[in-house]
Design a binder for these strands. Sequence first.
DNA 1: CTGAAAGCGCTTACAG
DNA 2: CTGAAAGCGCTTACAG
Lengths: 343, 343
Amino acid sequence: MPLPPSSAKPTLAAIARGTGVSTATVSKVVNGRADVADETRAKVLAALEEAGYRSPSQRRTPTGPDVVEVAFDAIDSAYPSALLNGILDHAATTGVEVVVSTTGRQRTTELGLGRKAQRIINEGRAGVIVVTSAYGESGLAAFLRRHIPVVVIDSYNPPPADVVSVGAANWAGGKAATEHLLDLGHRRIAYLGGPESIECNQARLHGHLSALTSRGIEADPGLVRHGRFRAEYGIEGLTALLSRPHPPTAIFAGNDAIAVGVLREARRRGIRVPEDLSLVGFDGTALASDSVPALTSVAQPLQEMGRAALRAVLRQARGEQPDTHRVELATRLVVRESTAVLG
Amino acid sequence: MPLPPSSAKPTLAAIARGTGVSTATVSKVVNGRADVADETRAKVLAALEEAGYRSPSQRRTPTGPDVVEVAFDAIDSAYPSALLNGILDHAATTGVEVVVSTTGRQRTTELGLGRKAQRIINEGRAGVIVVTSAYGESGLAAFLRRHIPVVVIDSYNPPPADVVSVGAANWAGGKAATEHLLDLGHRRIAYLGGPESIECNQARLHGHLSALTSRGIEADPGLVRHGRFRAEYGIEGLTALLSRPHPPTAIFAGNDAIAVGVLREARRRGIRVPEDLSLVGFDGTALASDSVPALTSVAQPLQEMGRAALRAVLRQARGEQPDTHRVELATRLVVRESTAVLG
DNA sequence: CTGAAAGCGCTTACAG
DNA sequence: CTGAAAGCGCTTACAG
């Protein structure tokens, strides 16, 4: 009597028993040989998938190091670099290996992503860390179905319930940025954000708005603009704001790249920062400290976020329950040279 | 009659025959069991090493993707990030997997590095890319002994003859930087470099000196300073240069980070760039384009260097001979806002 | 501490 | 296209 496949151990013989074929046939399917009927192949593949079978070379070495895959959109700024740095730092101390892959900013097709997810599963990763948007709901679900722990850093969308997410306190950071500007006497404060739909951007904006309303200042919708997290949108944003009847005296930028764009456009126009315009960024990467004038910015503990993400993945890989669905690390307002008392 | 170990196929049985013990004993050694005499273990380990034995889980999956290891000192600036970006880009198009590891800037002990090298060998990598200094001569030699192809990017020291190195045209880039400043009328041009002993730094310096002497200008040794590739050394360097009787009118910085330090210190002192001081950086990363004023800089094709390194490693992994011992990619002077005609 | 022997998981040449 | 059977590479319980 064939056992239900789910209770069988993942050996060729067990799969063979479960599907009513010989081990030889299962072996052929596993090795992609041609001489198997399509129907048989399909049945066996389904059973292999169901049982979570790994061929010997796919099996994780019992003694070998755990391998964690980190999927980025791209590594094209200080932000992903700092995250990776934190991940690699913790990896070195725990003896874990890190495979890094990028999906490319131009959204890959669903099919392409599915294939990448399948590869990650086949390679027997101990876990997966997904940064921002790489892999949608369906990709994440594929990992979970195979019981591969997933942690998402700064997810663009709210992740499913059984995925741990790591991020910074974006709302509190946004509030702190705007409170700093309010404390300096500014009242017309603009927000130049990233993509409107993205979670972290919304949280920063709402922190900003909350700071305004809690001081009894009505937010002017004309002072809120969205774009992308790149310098171009700072240039474009400042240009648009200056064409208004009452331009702002201060700008809170959704990240440092946007702030740097603002800085550059301000300089081009002879607007002095901070004398004529105060400016706060977000992220606190080298971009903020190296720019001239150095940017006041809300620092995210990016390295620590990377470390926390790896820690959370490894904890789950060891079979421990995650303590929390969301790891949120504190941000810190670092005041530098780009903000001053309203003159 | 036992065969000489080198001609035996790398199976347990062959190792056993070669060393005159049973397959059971060899198996125990491979799996690190305790019940083997030290002497026997040593003999068997030597034979395993000699034969290049890999246990089933260490064997590269015949169908599985190649895995290339990339060893950085650290991923703490735009420079390693851009290299990695190029490597990952080419990896995505060739289906190769990339394991990233960092050795940490504080030189790890020889022993620690040796262990890391051994791990990389055991994991059956198709090849290794070493960035700047990670792994010394002995580490590289260990890879070569096991016939694992190695490519070095921007090696701190000249690599051994059978290691392909990838880098930019540092000498030509340094020459172009200084010629640009000479063309603008500058005659007292300082060089603020990175560590004096490092190859790429020396090449940039000598390009600079060559530009001077080919215009009949005697180089002033007091205008050459070394430090590290960080902003602090730009601050320190400018401070030292200004204390001289005849400060320079232009500075060629060994990389963009140093140039940014110069920029910051100049601003603090009320020295205008480029009106009072012209400044050229090296690397051409976002640091140069995002700084205010934007930096004139010698751009290295970092992404292309990453791609070229992976291409060279994979070519060797396929058993092809490398075309060249050194892949040198052209640099390009990008003129921005930090250089002007001597006033 | 060593190895003969049993056995496991998988593959393959080949008969049907 | 399928599977019985031989066999390979490795591991392990156990006798010595």
